[in-house]
Design a protein around this nucleic acid. Structure first.
Length: 564
DNA sequence: TACAATGACACA
DNA sequence: TACGTGTGTCATTGTA
């Protein structure tokens, strides 16, 4: 019974090799070849539930689906976590680079990131991106690098820190599995509802691709009339500003909040035009034909794509679906959507991180801002919220000074925590999330600007403060991402235990502090309970013994738009 | 023609 | 009420 298996798919064909491993990565016996890798993996998974060691789950797991794996160790996702933790942020992070470091060989530079832009024929047939030197056996490389990563994890001195970093590696790796599953399953998307919505708001689909839909074109014409009648392109901020100037209206920019303050009939039209035009270009018919197929929206997620550990997405803008389009996300007949988002996650994370007893009391349950207002802001919830957000993001302008002063007096530990993180950043230091994700060090240019600068130098001071805001926010955003990842990994495990087979609940969406499960309706209530349990489990795993709670607002709905 | 920078706005 | 972090995408505009 091996706790771990390394695997390497054959470059061509359905087979692959498997190598049982001990926990520390020591090979147990000889590798064996499976003519049908997915079948062999499914059999071993059913019997042993090992931790699968992938070079990269995103490419290694997808071909095995619909086989579901419980646990993995993703070498590609783990390497940057370790390099960052060890203070080697800029080092190449490919499997080949990690292999070369173990063997003291020349380390190959990383290839540029694959983006949607170069996702063409050429790159489809490009050699893999592992960067292994010619002649190196991929399975041997996976085994070697895994053993090295396990050794480096064990080398973390402090036991608590070591345990947390291991948790981070496991959660990040689970994210790798999940992202592949979500990509394969897709988000339920009703193209007909989307169509109807577009037609209602924009007019019928233009016959000529690229043409403005009727209502957008009419709005553009109306706008031109309202600004003197001379033709101009409403998509060009420059031309819009000039058209307004000709009417005697001086504007610093065409930002919508700026336009809202302008007393001119054309301002409203510009705002409306931009809204509709954006819907058409970003999420219109072209978007639908590119990204929606077979009743599912299939974006690509990039696990750890943001330095803070949040996921990013590539193509389709999966993490920026405008609210109005949530109408199109509808459960299949007989199925429901369980939508859950963590309420006030970031201030709760601050309370737990800083162990500020007072703030933790306000975060023990219910509405955190309400509780904060009651104890420190004479019941004014908006002040409480503004002040706390300002503290977490490093806001200095506006009338926020007195609010920050109040917070500093009432919650010295919490405010001290973010201010210490800000000072570390301003001084060029690095900070880490709760589980040990490390922020990037300052760039060489930053060091030039700040260290060479005189004390009174404006540019240097600005750069320093900007980095202070970044590190101040990093400790919170990245620790929130730690919690979310742990919650997600737990929820994934719980859903698998709830039901297997074709009509099991699927995680179909994840956006920073929000998850969505598509489930047979008769399981929806149990899914909702598992979401709550996963949230509490993540609280204990990530923050241990804290009075802070992380409540979720959960809705069981047919349509995403009906959640909250 | 292709790419980068910019402005704007969507999401957390 | 309007500037405080992190992203992705599109159209325009300027440069290679």
């Amino acid at each position: 019974m091996a706790p771990r298996y390394a695997l390497a798919p054959d470059p061509h064909g359905p087979g692959g090799r498997l190598q049982p491993l001990a926990d520390d990565g020591t090979p147990l016996g000889a590798p064996h070849h499976a003519p049908a890798l997915a079948t062999a993996v499914a059999r071993i998974e059913a019997a042993e539930q090992p931790r699968w060691v992938f070079a990269a789950a995103d490419s290694g797991y997808a071909p095995l689906l619909p086989v579901r794996l419980a646990r993995c160790h993703d070498l590609r996702l783990t390497e940057p976590l370790l390099l960052g933790h060890e203070g080697h942020w800029g080092e190449p992070r490919s499997l080949g680079a990690a292999w070369a470091r173990v063997h003291g060989r020349p380390v190959p530079a990383d290839l540029p990131e694959a983006g949607a832009a170069d996702d063409d024929q050429a790159s489809l047939f490009a050699p893999d991106r592992l960067q292994l030197p010619p002649g190196v056996d991929p399975l041997e490389a996976v085994v070697t690098v895994h053993a090295d990563q396990q050794r480096r994890l064990s080398a973390v001195r402090d036991a608590g820190e070591r345990a947390r970093l291991r948790l981070l590696v496991a959660a990040e790796s689970a994210g790798g599995l999940l992202a592949a599953e979500i990509a394969a399953d897709g988000l339920p998307w009703r193209a007909d509802v989307h169509d109807l919505l577009l037609t209602e708001l924009l007019g019928p689909r233009p016959q000529i691709p690229g043409a403005r839909p009727r209502l957008v074109a009419e709005l553009a014409a109306e706008l031109q009339q309202a600004l003197g009648g001379r033709p101009f392109n409403p998509d060009s901020p420059d031309q819009v500003l000039r058209a307004f100037a000709e009417q005697g209206v001086k504007l610093p920019s065409t930002r919508s909040w700026e336009l809202r303050r302008v007393d001119h009939p054309a301002a409203e039209l510009v705002i409306r035009y931009k809204e509709l035009s954006r819907l058409h270009t970003a999420h219109g018919w072209a978007w639908q034909s590119a990204w929606v197929r077979g009743g599912r929206f299939r974006p690509e997620y990039v696990v750890g794509g943001v330095v803070s550990g949040r996921w990013a997405s590539r193509g389709g803008g999966a993490l920026q679906i405008p609210r109005i389009l949530r109408r199109a996300v509808v459960a299949d007949p007989g199925w429901s959507l369980v939508v859950a988002d963590a309420a006030q996650l970031e201030p709760r994370v601050l309370a737990a991180l800083s162990e500020d007893a007072g703030l933790a009391r306000t975060a023990a349950e219910g509405d955190l801002y309400e509780a904060l207002a009651a104890t420190a802001f004479q019941g004014d919830r908006s002040k409480a919220k503004l002040g706390l957000l300002g503290a977490m993001y490093g806001q200095t302008s506006g009338d926020i000074g007195p609010l920050l002063a109040t917070l500093r007096r009432r919650y010295p530990a919490a405010m001290g925590y973010v201010e210490a993180a800000a000072r570390t950043g301003e001084d060029g230091g690095i900070v880490r999330s709760r589980l040990g994700r490390t922020c990037p060090p300052p760039s060489a240019e930053w060091l030039d600007r700040t260290e060479a600068a005189d004390p009174g130098d404006e540019a240097g001071g600005r750069s320093a403060r900007a980095r202070g805001r970044f590190t101040r926010n990093f400790v919170i955003q990245a620790s929130a991402a730690d919690w979310a990842l742990a919650m997600l990994a737990g929820l994934r495990r719980r859903l698998a235990a709830l039901s297997s087979g074709a009509d099991r609940p699927h995680l179909v969406f994840f956006q920073h502090d929000e998850v969505m499960v598509h489930t047979p309706s008769d399981l929806a209530d149990r899914v909702a309970a598992e979401v709550a349990a996963a949230a509490d489990e993540a609280r204990a795993l990530v923050f241990g013994d804290t009075p802070v709670r992380f409540p979720l607002s959960t809705a069981v709905v047919d349509c995403y738009a009906d959640a909250k």
